[in-house]
């Protein structure tokens, strides 16, 4: 009877521990989606979720896309060399092209 009781409590302990672990895993903050996670060097880089990847479902940079923001001739190409306030200039303080949404293979 004593052994049976010890076994009963061992089982209850294991079940309770499993329930606690399951609850903890369910409630700890879920890690950010893998696509938004990036190495420190590219922290905040929207290209971590590269919308221009070849196989992306909604690639805004596709060759024939109507609203390709990176097309060479696009009026609003923020990275056009001639743009008066080209934020992508080599020495720009806050180069948004570090997060170039149209880079072929954005850094991760």
């Amino acid at each position: 009877m004593k052994d049976r009781n010890t076994l009963l409590f061992g089982s209850v302990f294991v079940l309770a521990t499993a329930a606690i672990a399951a609850d903890h895993l369910r409630h700890v903050a879920p890690p950010p989606p893998a696509t938004a996670v990036s190495a420190p060097a590219v922290s905040g880089n929207p290209c971590a979720a590269n919308p221009c990847a070849a196989g992306a479902a909604v690639n805004p940079c596709a060759a024939g896309a109507a609203t390709n923001p990176c097309a060479a001739s696009a009026a609003t190409n923020p990275c056009a060399a001639s743009a008066a306030t080209n934020p992508c200039a080599a020495g720009a303080a806050t180069n948004p092209c570090a997060a170039n949404p149209c880079a072929a293979a954005p850094a991760r």
Binding site: I20, D23, R26, V28
Partner: peptide, 15 residues
């Protein structure tokens, strides 16, 4: 309710 049971001070004292 929203946090892990391990973050509840009463629960961990009970354990």
């Amino acid at each position: 309710l929203a946090q892990s049971v391990l973050a509840d001070s009463t629960s961990v004292m009970d354990f």
